[in-house]
Amino acid sequence: MIDQKVHDQVQTPIQPDAPRLSEEERIGIIGSPNRGDCIMEPIEPVALGFEAFSLWYGAKRAIQDVTIKFPANRVTALIGPSGCGKSTLLRSMNRMNDLIPGVRTEGSVYYRGIDIFARDIDPVEVRRRIGMVFQKPNPFPKSVADNVAFGARVNGFRGNTRELIENCLRKAALWDEVKDGLNKSGLALSGGQQQRLCIARALANEPEIILMDEPCSALDPIATLKIEDLMRELVKDYTIIIVTHNMQQAARVSDYTAFMLMGEGGAGQVIEYAPTNEIFTNPRDKRTEDYITGRFG
């Protein structure tokens, strides 16, 4: 059985010093009853793992029993129709949902073997390690330099800020375009540049994981291409998880793809999860096939 094999090799800790998952946690992650054989867990080191995770907005359940693992140093795409809980799932990964009143969660999200929803976990520390880029570019109404330096500054960065700014802007492929105007307002940049500025800003915190919530949906095709190239470049050093409505984008940039759908109770579930070329060429679930081929959604 393929599942058995996956089972044995998966969940290598990212770093030797990271706490190892208990046997129970390992086993619990694969083979829960609703999974069928549409979930092909990556046989790779894991950056972030959901386990039986559910989320409610007030009385309404938005995420139902999601168990999925995201591989380190890979791009994983979350696809699915509107309202299927992709963004909610993404925002759970760095506890941005905490900010919404009436949110309740069950289950766990493991990062380096630690449940980030545990009582004693500080969401601020989680967010420093798991950065986020939003749908609409949201640079601060400050200079380009201040935008990049902000996260590092508030987190007590004591180093050469100038150097940090340059490094991050270079990594975000923005340096050449803004190096002569570091003191100009971030809002004066074009949409694509603003989004790359937001990526540079996230990099300044030296995160391990970068979450992207439809990062190109407000951009034109050229700017989109630049961000996609950038993602392929960044994935050498970072884990990227991206929500996208654009199937071609998922096919172009991601190594793995998870397809989500609203279940019967209106709550989002992961229907299929596999390497991207697998899911696009050989979808196992009928609903995945219908969605990918454009029959609905």
Binding site: L99, R127, G131, M132, N138, F150, V154, A202
Partner: peptide, 19 residues
């Protein structure tokens, strides 16, 4: 979106308000 941006960079509530 400005608050989200700030919080997502690991700023605390107070830092977000202040900056």
């Amino acid at each position: 979106s400005i608050r989200d941006g700030s919080l997502a960079l690991g700023a605390t509530r107070l830092q977000t308000v202040w900056h």
